[in-house]
């Protein structure tokens, strides 16, 4: 049985990939995740300058999910090289995706150029953080034409595969994915957090997050994430990293059947800690055995009707 995923020419030993924003501040932390079973990892999004992000509280769980307003904290791309080198030293076998952010297209291109020089296998363009609207305006992925422009600009500065991370907060995510694909994206990551949302403490009579609003993830958004992956699968030919509420093996299988080739794993850590990677991979393996499937790629898009052919898109 083959659980190995060839994604844009990069070999992942299993379909689980640590999602951006989770445990991605240091190279050692990322490597700790692969040692516990993650097939690959995604770094935390980096911008040009060092950023402290929003003041705490920045991350909360509520019944059904997670809400966060970390606010793109990071040491700045120029300071972060040692973290990628540390990851490579500690986890030489597992791919790493470098997450790229910026206030505008010029900054994103600048960060991508530097990331391109680092030991990363792929670049993920974070066009969809909903927690910094006050500072940066609407996320790029909320507009298909700006997504096109930004993808095209980054395509010109790197030969490494690019995946564009999309927002679920749009009327037609398939259209946004098409614009990314047409301008050089090799893959789509879907979806970023929903919202923003808000949680109020009734005793304090205040929103709990210091930023007041934050992006919502976890099981609460899974049906929306599954539908987004489904729509993207039917709109573009490039492969998808499906993320948003994949907590257990059943969720993972659902996402793959919608069209995900890889699975972005984040909130699952809240519920199952770092053993979530092995739990998900084990469940996929057991399901494939039961169903008589030999290669994990057979699961991808299985929920679409017979005769549906992406190659004819």
């Amino acid at each position: 049985m083959n659980l190995n995923v060839n994604f844009c020419g990069i070999q992942f030993p299993n379909p689980t990939v640590l999602a951006s924003g989770y445990l991605g501040v240091t190279g050692a932390s990322l490597a700790n995740c692969t040692s516990k079973g993650a097939g690959g990892v995604t770094s935390k999004t980096l911008l040009m300058k060092e950023r402290t992000g929003h003041a705490n509280p920045t991350i909360l769980t509520f019944p059904g999910g997670v809400i966060n307003a970390v606010g793109l904290s990071g040491e700045g791309i120029g300071n972060a090289k040692h973290e990628f080198e540390k990851y490579r030293e500690l986890a030489p076998e597992n791919p790493i995706i470098g997450s790229v952010g910026g206030h505008d297209i010029d900054e994103i291109v600048e960060v991508a150029q530097i990331m391109d020089e680092y030991p990363v296998d792929m670049l993920e363009l974070n066009f969809s953080c909903p927690n910094v609207e006050g500072e940066m305006g609407k996320p790029i992925a909320c507009d298909p034409l700006i997504t096109a422009q930004a993808t095209k600009a980054v395509r010109q500065v790197t030969k490494k595969p690019i995946t564009v991370k999309l927002s679920p907060n749009v009327p037609d995510i398939g259209l946004v994915a098409k614009h990314a694909e047409a301008n050089g994206a090799d893959a789509i990551t879907a979806v970023n957090t929903m919202g923003p949302g808000m949680v109020i403490d009734i005793q304090m009579r205040r929103p709990i997050l210091t930023n007041k609003v934050g992006g919502v993830s976890g099981h609460a958004i899974k049906p929306i994430a599954v539908r987004c992956v489904w729509d993207i699968y039917r709109s573009v030919k490039i492969p998808i990293i499906a993320t948003g509420g994949v907590i257990n093996g059943r969720d993972a299988l659902e996402m793959m059947m919608a069209g995900g080739s890889l699975l972005g794993i984040g909130s699952a850590i809240v519920y199952h800690d770092l053993k979530c990677f092995d739990m998900i991979t084990d469940k996929i393996r057991a399901f494939m055995e039961e169903e008589g499937l030999n290669d994990i790629s057979e699961l991808v898009g299985l929920a679409h009707e017979e005769g549906f052919d992406r190659d004819k898109l």
Partner: peptide, 8 residues
């Protein structure tokens, strides 16, 4: 609670 990676 072990998800953000800030204290590793």
């Amino acid at each position: 609670f072990g998800i953000c990676g800030q204290c590793c």
